[in-house]
Each structure stands twice: as structure tokens, then as C-alpha cells.
Design a protein around this nucleic acid. Structure first.
Ligand SMILES: [Mg+2]
Length: 620
DNA sequence: TCATGTTTAAGGCCAG
DNA sequence: CTGGCCTTAAACATGA
């Protein structure tokens, strides 16, 4: 059995919360998304502790996936049938790991005034600019050749404003150092007649991609894709009619030539390609803004996905026993759950804040884990004794307060709007801690990409309402709440849940979370990005696109309906991804390791991978 | 029946 | 003491 070593926790319970473990697994995967079973596997492979009592922790893990908004479910690509869906991280959740460690969530940091002033000066007036601001300068994406990226607004239906928002330029001011909590400042949904351009969600983002993609998907693109035939997944629902789904969204069927594998006509494909080009240029530009470090500073350790596969060197022999917890764990108990496992438990918030890692050059999970372990070891030892000796204290995992869970991101964040994501301090490796350390632009860029707005559909959304005693805090300002459940559902006043803030009057619902295209990092999996942004747009349109500016009445659909929509979106996203893969700009080719938009960049080269991944991935 | 998801409850800790 | 977080337990639902 594995024994604890610098690199591993052996049988001891690792100091990571389920959220951390899951994020690690997801983020270290090649596509930044994994099916449930693979998440399990990752955890078990890396942490022997979890090879036991699987039912127990897996149940918890599943709970976390569903419950926390930072985890998003992305349906499988039609061309890759399989068991469940893929799970990925909400783009905004990435910032939680900025400090390079999954150990604990950074504590809430308030932007020190000093920094604030600095920002003011540096960014000038634009800093707090609440309004959408300039963004005017359009920078036609270079990459898109003649075929201009500004596609003809051809798309049917969407009353989407066709103006392409500038890729990067104008955005900096606004969200540069602002966390998502600020982004809403620009205003509230004033959707006019479907003027998505004005929707806060797209305030600073380049919606061209999502717009087209979503338009395509919403229009019922791959229309007959899943109907009876189609090998893909069968789908025996005789009753379901493939075409019945577009709820009100225009059915832009292009009947024409036989659908290709993805069920699209040539025209459809052209449109998708167009969208793809836009997406590509967006990504390229985003990528350029990333801080590029000299190779010399990079570590050549293999990329995560490689490591993951490797055997686990560090698991070896037995441990020091101890584990009082182990024993306890075995005995299931309900309440006083096992003992703490330690590790976690022993960190104080302070320590948590200290995690560092910044852009560590160690682009490997093993290294990360080792680092984290080091940081907590000492402490644990001591505490462990205490624990053993008598008290138990921690529960389950104890104290990890990590919380990356963006559950309903609300309250916490705001509080004052001043918090931003930075870590407090400390740096090891001499690096300056916060994002401020990097060049302004970098930081700005990164931050922007990560944070941007979440769509906060007005505070009236589901959850907030029922504030009950406790939850009342939902803030007045900072409407940055991501609707827990999809926008289709109405906020019926149900009142259930109390203390856990677990409300949900939506009934069984497909957790659709708003995701702004602008939040999708260049390194974000293309397919997932396409799907999420399209889905978000689609729901948004369904909810607000009535021209009145007011939300549409809730629509409750049979879950089958939702399922069909998912399939459509998945197909559209897959088509875009496929196009991107072949045309350039999008996903990394699994086979060649090349990133289409970056010819010279071969992702199989760890340094390249690191480079391209950008600092947000520094952790992993 | 098993795997995958969703949710509601409830107990423990910790910072404030 | 309390609100926010993290775990666990469990009831349920759905599809393979
Ligand atoms: Mg979720």
C-alpha cells in the first residue's frame, strides 16, 4: 500500500475537497472535460485513500457535480457515444485556481487599496467604467481573411444584432481587474427586441461565435439528426419528433442536400464554418494576449494528461498507519463521520491564503500535489496527534474550506465589490503574488477572459427570491448570480430549503448555467465552449427574446424536450468543432498535437502546452 | 440492476 | 452565535 511520501498522501486523506479533486481531474485532462467515471478514476489513481468506500465518496462527488455551479455538464459529442455526459469547469471557476493550487480556495481577498489606486492610474478612467464603454473600435479579426469575420447577418431568426463586438480591445477596461461581480455594472438586461448585443452577458464578449453557433443550433440545425435512424445513439423514443423541438425558435431548416454525418446541409456547414472562423480569430487574439514566457522559464515536465496516464510512481508501501481515520471511515457512521483526515483539517484560513504557486512552472499534477502536501505536512503532523489523541473534530474532509464551489456564486462575492481575485500573498519562487505582478496587460487580459460577466438574470431569478431569513443576504448589488437552474423555469415561490441555501423550486431541471462566450478561454475545449455558449444563448433567447424586454413566461417542458435540445446543441457544437479541427482554429488535434490556429505550436511539447495554456492553467 | 444525475437534509468547522 | 462551506446520507429519476 501506498505510503505517504512527498508526492503522495498514501492512504491518508488528501487535503483536497471534492471540488478540488474534481477540478484537478477535469483540468488535467486533455480536453478539459471528463465523464464521471474518469473523474473517479483520476481520483483513485492519484489518491489511494479513495480506493475505499467508493460508494460513499462517489455519491458525494456526484452531489458536488450537480450541486456546484462551477461544474458544468456537457453532453457527449454525437460522434462519441458513451455513457454519461462530460463534466467541465465553468469558465469563471478557473480563476479560483489562479494561485496554482487546488488546495484551498483563496480566501476572499479584498483588493488592497494600494492596488486599487494603481489600477486607477493605470487604467485610467476606464477602470470603473461601468458602462459597456468603448468597445467601439472594432478590430476586424485579422485572421479571418476576406471572408470577413463579420458574417452576414444572414441568420434567420435570431434577431441578434449583427454587430460584431470587438474581439479584445475594448474589453480591457471593463473587466480587466474586475471580477465577474463587477461586470454586471454595465446594465441590466435591456433586451430590446432581442438585442443580444446589449445584454450584459455579452457586454464585453465576442459573441460572434456564440451568436452564429447558437443561431444555428437554435434554428434547429441538425434537424433530423436524431430522428429515428441515425446510428448515433439510437434513441428509441418513437414518440419524439425531432422537429418539434425548437421552441419558438425559428426553424431554419435548410432542406437541401442530404445531411452529412452531422446532419447538416452544405449551407449549414458554410455558416458553421463562418462562425468557426470567427471563433478562431477570437481565440487567436486571446491567445496572443497571454503572457508568453520564455521557454527557459518553462518546465518541461509532461503535461497533465500524460501524467495522468502514467503509472503512479509514488504509490508505494505502507504507511504509518495511524489513520485513525481510516478505521473510522470504515465504520460508517453518520454523523460524526470519520475523523478528520487530517490534512485538511489542519489549515487555517490563513494558510489557505498562502497557497501559491502562481504560474508555477511545474505543470504537473504530481508536483502540485507534492507542493500542497509540503505546505500542510508540518501542520498536520502536529494536529494529527491531537486528533488521534482524542478529539475528533473534523468531519469528513474536514475542513477544507475550499470552496471553489461556485455554488450560486452570490453572496460571497460581492460583498463589496472589491474583491478581486487575488491571492494574498506570498510567493515562493520570488514571484509576485497577485495577478498584478504580471504585466498589466496580461493580467488584464487574463482576468478579462476569465471573469467577464455571468449572465445574471436578474435577481429575480429563482433562487434569490426565497430568501429566507438566512439567505437574505443576497445582495442588493451584485446581481451576479448565476441562475442555478435554467432560465426556462419560473421562479415559483417555493420555499424549501433553508439553511443550506439549497433551494430549488424548479423541479427536475437541466441545470443550464449561463456561460458567456467571452469567458471561454482559448484553451478551453472547443467543443465544450461551443456547446456552452450556444446553450447559454439559446436559453437566453428563449427566455428573454420576446422583444418586450421582459422574460418570457416560464416554460416547462418535458425532460425529453430538453434532451432533444441538448442533442441539437451538441451536434451543432460538434460540427463547429469538426470544422475548426479541419479548417483551423479550434481544438487541438488529438493525433498531431497541433493547434490549428497555431501552426508552430505542437501541444505535445510540454513547453508549448504550458505556453499556450496560459497562466490560468498554471495550476494544472 | 447499475450508472448517472438531482436534490433535500443535516452535522461539523471556522472566521467574523 | 451565525453564515458560509464542506461532507454524508438518501430519496428519486432515467436510461442502458
Ligand atoms: Mg453543476
Amino acid at each position: 500500500m501506498p505510503r505517504p511520501s512527498r508526492e503522495s498522501y498514501g492512504d491518508q486523506k488528501p487535503a483536497y475537497s471534492y471540488i478540488s479533486l474534481t477540478a484537478m481531474a477535469i483540468w488535467s485532462s486533455p480536453e478539459k472535460m471528463l465523464p464521471l467515471a474518469d473523474i473517479y478514476k483520476f481520483i483513485m489513481d492519484h489518491f489511494p485513500y479513495y480506493r475505499k468506500n467508493t460508494q460513499r465518496w462517489q455519491n458525494s462527488l456526484r452531489h458536488n457535480l450537480s450541486f456546484n455551479d462551477c461544474f458544468l455538464k456537457v453532453p457527449r459529442r454525437p460522434d462519441r457515444p458513451g455513457k454519461g455526459a462530460y463534466w467541465t469547469l465553468h469558465p469563471n471557476a478557473l480563476s479560483m485556481f489562479e494561485n496554482g493550487s487546488f488546495l484551498r480556495r483563496r480566501k476572499r481577498f479584498k483588493l488592497p487599496k494600494v492596488d486599487k489606486e494603481f489600477l486607477q492610474k493605470t487604467l485610467g478612467s476606464s477602470f470603473p467604467s461601468s458602462s459597456p464603454g468603448p468597445m467601439t473600435s472594432i478590430t476586424p479579426t485579422p485572421s479571418s481573411p476576406t471572408t470577413t469575420t463579420t458574417p452576414p447577418a444572414t441568420h434567420p431568426n435570431n434577431g441578434l444584432s449583427m454587430s460584431m463586438s470587438p474581439p479584445i480591445p475594448g474589453m480591457i477596461p471593463n473587466s480587466a481587474f474586475m471580477s465577474s461581480q463587477f461586470s454586471h455594472m454595465g446594465g441590466h438586461h435591456q433586451f430590446g427586441p432581442i438585442a443580444f448585443g446589449s445584454h450584459p452577458m455579452f457586454l464585453n464578449s465576442n459573441i460572434s461565435d456564440a451568436r452564429l453557433l447558437a443561431a444555428a443550433a437554435a434554428a434547429g440545425y441538425p434537424r433530423d439528426l436524431y430522428g429515428h435512424h441515425h446510428a448515433i445513439h439510437h434513441h428509441p423514443h418513437p414518440h419524439q419528433h425531432p422537429n418539434h423541438l425548437s421552441n419558438g425558435i425559428q426553424q431554419g431548416f435548410h432542406s437541401g442536400p442530404p445531411p452529412n454525418i452531422v446532419g447538416m446541409s452544405p449551407k449549414d456547414l458554410d455558416d458553421i464554418r463562418e462562425a468557426t472562423r470567427a471563433i478562431r480569430s477570437l481565440r487567436e487574439q486571446s491567445g496572443k494576449l497571454h503572457r508568453i514566457k520564455p521557454l527557459s522559464e518553462l518546465d518541461l515536465s509532461p503535461p497533465p494528461h500524460v501524467l495522468v496516464k502514467s503509472s503512479h510512481p509514488h504509490l508505494h508501501s505502507p504507511p504509518p498507519a495511524v489513520n485513525s481515520e481510516t478505521m473510522k471511515v470504515a465504520g460508517q457512521d453518520v454523523q460524526p463521520r470519520e475523523k478528520s483526515s487530517s490534512a485538511n483539517s489542519l489549515l487555517t484560513n490563513q494558510q489557505r491564503g498562502k497557497r501559491r504557486g502562481g504560474n508555477s512552472n511545474n505543470f504537473s499534477i504530481e508536483n502540485l500535489i507534492a507542493k500542497d502536501k509540503d505546505s500542510t505536512d508540518n501542520k498536520n503532523i502536529k494536529d494529527r496527534k491531537a486528533v488521534i489523541s482524542g478529539k475528533d473534530s473534523s468531519s469528513g474532509s474536514d475542513k477544507l474550506n475550499n470552496n471553489h464551489g461556485c455554488k450560486n456564486e452570490k453572496s460571497d462575492d460581492d460583498e463589496e465589490d472589491e474583491d478581486i481575485v487575488m491571492d494574498d500573498d506570498e510567493e515562493e519562487e520570488g514571484r509576485v503574488p497577485s495577478i498584478l505582478s504580471d504585466s498589466m496587460s496580461d493580467a488584464a487580459t487574463d482576468d478579462r477572459l476569465i471573469h467577464l460577466d455571468n449572465l445574471s438574470t436578474n435577481e429575480n431569478d429563482n433562487e434569490s427570491n426565497h430568501s429566507h431569513n438566512s439567505s437574505e443576504r443576497s445582495q442588493s448589488h451584485s446581481p451576479v448570480t448565476i441562475p442555478r437552474k435554467n432560465l426556462l423555469v419560473s421562479p415559483s415561490p417555493s420555499l424549501s430549503s433553508p439553511r443550506n441555501g439549497q433551494y430549488n423550486n424548479n423541479g427536475p431541471s437541466p441545470g443550464v448555467v449561463a456561460v458567456s462566450a467571452g469567458n471561454l478561454l482559448p484553451s478551453y475545449p472547443f467543443y465544450a465552449a461551443a456547446f456552452l455558449s450556444a446553450q447559454s444563448l439559446l436559453y437566453n433567447q428563449q427566455y428573454f427574446g420576446n422583444g418586450t424586454g421582459a422574460p418570457n413566461p416560464a416554460q416547462h417542458h418535458h425532460h425529453h424536450h430538453h434532451h432533444q435540445q441538448q442533442l441539437q446543441l451538441a451536434a451543432a457544437a460538434a460540427a463547429a468543432a469538426a470544422s475548426a479541427e479541419s479548417g483551423g482554429g479550434g481544438a487541438i488535434s488529438p493525433s498531431s498535437g497541433h493547434y490549428p490556429g497555431h501552426p508552430g505550436l505542437n501541444m505535445s511539447n510540454p513547453a508549448a502546452a504550458m505556453l499556450f495554456s496560459g497562466k490560468h492553467l498554471s495550476g494544472l
